[in-house]
Design a binder for these strands. Sequence first.
RNA 1: GGCGCUAUCGUCUAACGGUUAGGACAGAGCCCUCUCAAGGCUUAAAUACGGGUUCGAUUCCCGUUAGCGCUACCA
Length: 478
Amino acid sequence: MLRVRFAPSPTGYLHIGSARTFLFNWLYVRHNHGTLILRLDDTDVERNTQQSVDSIFDGLNWLGLGWDEYYQQSQRLEIHRQMTQAIFAKGLAYRDFTAASSGDEENNREGGAWLFNPSARDMPRTESDRRAAAGEPFVIRFRVPREPVQDIRFDDAVYGPQSKSTADMEDFALMRSNGMPTYHMASCADDVDLKISHIIRGQDHTSNTFKHVLIFEALGAERPTFAHLPLLIAPDGSKLSKRKHGPAVSVTTYRDAGFLPHAYLNFICLLGWSPKDDREQMTRQELTDAFSFDGINRANATVNFTEEDPFDPKAVWLNAELIRQMPLDELSTELLPFARAAGFAAEPDKMRQVTPLIQERIRLLRDVATVADFFFIERLPPFDKSELIPQKGDAAMALAALLRASEILSTTEFNHQALDTALRAGAQDMKIKPGQMFQPIRVAVCGRKNAPPLFETLEVLGRGTCLNRIGEAIRMLS
RNA sequence: GGCGCUAUCGUCUAACGGUUAGGACAGAGCCCUCUCAAGGCUUAAAUACGGGUUCGAUUCCCGUUAGCGCUACCA
């Protein structure tokens, strides 16, 4: 039975790297028809926050992938304690009464890493028991095998055979002096108890895996298959962090900007994985069908963002592509909340009329605020009247064009074909180019030069609004 | 410092030892066109460096360099 888990720790918002780890777990388990477990690794009482738990669920729910089973580590402490006790009872772990180091000894490491405190590791069991019984605080450390030194090995499904000498491994802690299990212990205990068959996680855990292998063995449990993923890094090569890179690393930033969940998924899936056949835009089903560990790259992937623009251009492109392919009704529904958030009194009917005009002009859903504003607001924001003057024309030409347009628009039927015919005929009468006729009208009606096609725009705006705005522009020029 | 991992266009990536080193995004140019988009076409752009092995290395081996990770009673 194939069982995988995604185990975020609630110490911050849902990170883009975590989202990708979740996605890869999801794809693997759906491809192979297994069970996906969501486990909140919340044993660090000091740093966990409810806000963070909420934000993780926010992000995961937005992605819309779902999971099959849910656990919280903090409610499974008894299991962790029992398993730690079992290791201790076998003599594979020992108590260390040394006070926690303050971390100041960073500098005196020239000779190599700290491995263990001999006085603790070699302390007779009777003395250890006596001091524990006296209430003296201690941590429980794993007794890493040293005589003889051995190589710990595992076969990574992505990186291949890995090995590390126990001479380079410190006696890591399993249980803190406050009685809480460490990450290593809790994680492995739960993986054993939940019968996890594949651990798919970030490559930052590769070095930890040697410790985990030792724990699995000490527990007499079969070790799962490990698959480590390359990390996601910032353009400057450093690892993505909230403090340094801001909202660019948070999943909800993408959601709030108007990314479609699938565009985001498609994007992060391509970071460190490839179907190897040049496909990029893929549906969820196609991704599921194509996913395997073989397609995972071993080098870290850079998420390409800047201080001005927190979004990778490829993610934006993928989103724009998806927007263009969406059925209009669906897109219109998605757009509505973004229009309202921009302060527009947008009605569904109006939104539905506007949608086809902006579909291929927006890249993010929030672009509705800047691209379609003039459809929804009562009064256009002020603009420079020189905008009204067409190419190779002057203010007189603009004025004449607007006066003529005003006449035409008051009599012509308000649909884009009729408007097209009538306005072109008007331009011909005036002996000016169609473009010279259209620009003043467009600016008068939209408040700027760059806008959707003119006749459709006029149609959606309606005769009254068009005439009012053109009248306003005529006053500006007079 | 120690240990581990990694290295192809600016970015994401393809190339089971033999290719004019391919694709995509971003960039540049042209076309289309009522503006903006969208679309079409074209273009520039990479195997980190040095040694091997081989008839032949992007590909295998070694070294250098660089980056990242771990080196906590964080996860």
